[in-house]
């Protein structure tokens, strides 16, 4: 069971959270402008990364807020968690965090 650092509540056990899939996939602003192919990509195409992965979590049984996280899928180490709307930390900012 992972230990997840909610940006609003602090460290809590995984069972308080729900995983929300890959992060930073914005819904197209005008879906009518999308081709079928583009819409299918938005709906179904997801990365399956070995290594650093941006993903969404929701602190369902806590504050109820969605947030984003950078997790190393090989080690399960969270390098960062950050609020919706914020940019993921840069490589430089991540330096020194043990992956």
């Amino acid at each position: 069971m992972l230990l997840i650092n909610c940006p609003y509540c602090g460290e809590r056990p995984e069972l308080e959270f729900v995983h929300g899939g890959q992060a930073h996939i914005a819904r197209p602003g005008d879906p009518a402008e999308c081709s079928d192919q583009q819409w299918a990509e938005y709906l179904y195409r997801r990365d399956n990364i070995k290594g650093l992965h941006g993903e969404r979590w929701r602190h369902t049984h806590g504050c109820g807020r969605f947030f984003n996280a950078l997790r190393d899928t090989t080690s399960d180490v969270f390098l960062a968690t950050y609020k919706v709307g914020e940019q993921p930390p840069t490589q430089a900012q991540l330096k020194g965090v043990k992956a």
């Binding site: 929701r58 369902t60 969605f66 709307g85």
Partner: peptide, 13 residues
């Protein structure tokens, strides 16, 4: 409710 919260918190802020 989770779906509503998702759109409200992440798409239509």
């Amino acid at each position: 409710l989770a779906m509503m919260e998702d759109y409200l918190q992440t798409e239509w802020t």
